[in-house]
Amino acid sequence: TEELLNARGGVFCEHHEEEYGERCRVVDCENDRVEDSMACQQHQALYKKHLKDKSRSNVSGLRRVLQRPAEQEEWQQPARANLQPHDEPEDEEAPRKHYFSPNRFYCIETMTAPCGVVIAWTKFAKSESPTKILDFLEKVFPIPALRPAYVCIDKACQVLRTAAVSGRWNSWKRTTRFIVDTYHYINHRKTDWLCREYCNPAPRDGSAPNLVGIQIDANGRIFEVREFNTQVAEQLNA
């Protein structure tokens, strides 16, 4: 993927900017653009609709930034509780109708150490699929002996399932355990056996002493504590 020729309002890289030239930015249209426009005369209505939608989106985003925390405006959709969007199948990408604005990356994926230092980052173009996450991990940690003991991510159960089905788990199982954050585990453990059995961020069977520790209170009573705040880890990555 090449950089945009003009990052302030441009759509194409240098190669495609020259290729399209003065052509209309609607897919498969061979007409010339109207001056100071991205579309030909035939597609002016589509271009004006794009500008209107883009302006409305920018205003909505500004309103979200300016509103007070937890404030819900009449024009906003109410948030659904316990939403786990990564549990849903990924939508197929709809074909583009025009090139009035550049493509956007789906997300920036960061890999963060427990201390908060970012180890690595990459851009995912169209989705945050388990396969892409595995590819990212293997690119950063190509040598099994140097891989971390734990990888915490909200899609850990999906990553584990994908690794097992594809045969890639054989290179990870001796060094690394994929765990989910506590929020995901609480909302997911009842319906997903694999998540409950293998991705528990705080197992109480003694299998993960680095995740669950033992402390003694002022009265001499022994109690268990989480040694690692997985929810903070997920927020750092987000």
Rank of each mutant, 00 (worst) to 15 (best):
K49Y: 04
L146D: 10
M38F: 02
D53C: 02
Y183P: 00
R161Q: 15
Y106I: 01
A238D: 03
S60A: 15
R174D: 12
V34K: 09
P95H: 09
R221Y: 11
S207L: 07
P148D: 11
G220A: 10
L4V: 06
I133L: 10
C115M: 15
V11C: 11
G9H: 02
T175W: 12
T182C: 08
L160G: 00
E197V: 12
A94D: 08
F228S: 10
L51E: 14
P102A: 03
A81W: 09
K49H: 06
V34A: 02
L46S: 11
L134R: 12
K48H: 01
S207K: 09
Q84R: 08
L134H: 05
K139N: 10
W193Q: 14
Q158L: 11
A202C: 07
C29F: 01
S101L: 00
E227D: 08
P209D: 01
C157F: 11
S60I: 15
V165C: 03
D87Y: 05
E128Y: 11
Y183V: 09
K123V: 09
R63T: 05
I119V: 07
E128Q: 11
P114K: 03
Q158N: 13
F105R: 02
P89I: 01
G10K: 03
Q76W: 03
E2T: 14
T182N: 02
I108Q: 06
S171N: 12
A45V: 12
E138D: 13
G167R: 14
P201Y: 05
L51F: 13
K173D: 12
Y150V: 07
T131D: 08
P95C: 05
E90L: 13
E19W: 08
R64Q: 12
W193S: 15
T122Y: 06
A149Y: 09
E14H: 11
C199K: 00
A81Q: 08
A79T: 05
G213S: 02
R189S: 13
S129M: 14
P144V: 10
A238L: 07
R168Y: 06
I119W: 05
D91Y: 15
N58C: 13
D36I: 00
R204F: 04
K126E: 14
Y150R: 14
I216S: 10
H86R: 04
Y106R: 03
R33E: 04
F105C: 07
Y183T: 04
K190C: 08
G206E: 08
E35W: 01
H15G: 06
L146F: 04
V59A: 01
N219F: 02
A145T: 15
F12C: 00
Y20V: 12
K173W: 02
